[in-house]
Amino acid sequence: MQRRFGFTLIELLVVMAIVSALLGIVAPRYMHKVAVAREAALKENLSALRIGLDQYYSDRGTYPEALGDLVARRYLRAVPLDPVTERRDTWVPAIREEEGGRKVVHDVRSGAAGNATDGTPFAAW
């Protein structure tokens, strides 16, 4: 009599049920950690942009007309990535008019839609 090697359908179903139960427990925690990491990166990138704006103002006595001026004058190597939108062009500059009608960027916010894990809108950061 020949003996067959392999798994029965019941054994495979039990293993798949155990694996899916474990994934059901781990996946939400993983996704939450990914969201928290994106928010931390967003805060860090906003901080780098604001420090660059402050240094530009400190050196030149005026704010830049665009965020690209920070890169052109080497206050930043590149405009940082918004980790929530995964783009560099979604930053929302806060523009104010100086004497003489010149419009300058004095602050920057995220252009990401939605709210952070603590409920505050990304645009409020």
Rank of each mutant, 00 (worst) to 15 (best):
A112Q: 08
G119N: 04
A116T: 12
E86A: 14
R73G: 03
L76A: 09
V105A: 03
T62W: 11
M31C: 04
W125S: 12
V19I: 15
S20L: 15
S47V: 06
G101A: 10
R50V: 02
G114P: 10
L53Q: 02
R60S: 11
V84I: 15
K43G: 09
R109Y: 13
T62F: 12
A21K: 00
V19Q: 01
V104C: 11
G114V: 04
E11P: 13
F122V: 00
S20W: 06
E11Q: 15
L67V: 03
L12D: 01
R102A: 14
S110P: 11
E44K: 07
R29A: 08
A124K: 10
A27T: 11
L42H: 01
A113H: 10
A94N: 13
W125C: 03
L13E: 06
G68Q: 13
H106V: 10
A21D: 00
R77N: 14
T120G: 05
G101T: 09
Y30R: 02
I95T: 10
L23W: 14
L42C: 05
G52L: 06
A17F: 09
R73D: 12
I10D: 02
P80I: 09
E98T: 04
R60C: 02
Y57S: 11
R3I: 14
P93Q: 01
V34R: 09
L81W: 02
I95E: 10
R77H: 10
R96N: 09
R74N: 12
G24H: 00
E97P: 02
M31R: 15
A41C: 00
R109E: 03
M1K: 13
V71C: 09
H32Q: 15
L70G: 05
A94S: 15
A41N: 08
A48S: 13
D69E: 08
G111S: 06
L67T: 02
